[in-house]
């Protein structure tokens, strides 16, 4: 497959270099909101949406910054941009789905500090993607994040029913599980020409 093609960029961000399991981005919500499957799914959806909006806007802002040679402001503008898109999602959710809004709780504003979102914006800049490539990259990243968090929530729901040794409390077991999931995802590494 041509590494520049849209489908490869999508697949790469979705499976091969999954944001959570291969690049370690967005671990806080991955550990924090993966206790129930529906919440996890909605969290994935909200994150994917913010990712898409902010990546699109980041592309536009980067054009402006490059035109005026203000690259050193990139980080600050990206962060401000992400904070505003999170605010947007928050307002939409509050209006259309108050139940979901409550379920996500503190983790909704914390999407702002989800490194996966800033990661998408930074990676697409450093890899020099054009507009369509950025869109496909952010969609793939969002889908990958959703997939990982839903898989994890499924595993943790099973675990709740099992009798565990006391020392596996807190996040220790989640980390081990994530390690095994990540090991599975490494199997996708053979999919592309470039890893």
């Amino acid at each position: 497959m041509n590494p520049e093609s849209l489908s490869f960029i999508f697949l790469n961000a979705f499976l091969i270099n999954n944001f959570v399991l291969a690049l370690f981005l967005g671990l806080c919500p991955f550990v924090g909101v993966s206790a129930k499957r529906d919440t996890a799914f909605n969290m994935g959806l909200a994150t994917a949406f913010v990712m898409f909006v902010s990546s699109t806007c980041a592309y536009a802002i980067n054009l402006v910054l490059t035109a005026y040679e203000l690259e050193f402001l990139r980080l600050i503008s990206y962060i401000a941009l992400i904070a505003s898109s999170v605010q947007l999602v928050e307002m939409i959710l509050k209006k259309f789905s108050p139940a979901l809004f409550r379920a996500l709780g503190i983790f909704l504003p914390l999407i702002t500090t989800n490194c996966a979102i800033l990661g998408v914006a930074l990676f697409q800049t450093s890899r020099g993607y054009d507009f369509l490539q950025s869109v496909s990259f952010s969609l793939g990243g969002g889908a990958g994040f959703g997939l990982a968090i839903v898989l994890m929530a499924g595993l943790r729901e099973k675990l709740e029913l099992s009798n565990l040794p006391n020392i596996t409390q807190a996040a220790a077991l989640s980390m081990m599980l994530a390690g095994i999931l990540s090991l599975t995802f490494m199997g996708f590494a053979g999919l592309g020409t470039t890893a």
Binding site: L21, A22, L23, F24, N166, I167, T168, Q169, A170, A171, A172, L173, S174, M175, M176, A178, G179, I180, S182, L183, M186
Partner: peptide
């Protein structure tokens, strides 16, 4: 990548064990 998760998980297990 998997090593990162597994090593952190193991450290946490070890720390939990000694704490308890």
């Amino acid at each position: 990548p998997p090593g990162g998760f597994i090593v952190l998980g193991s450290w946490l297990l070890l720390i939990n064990y000694f704490e308890q």
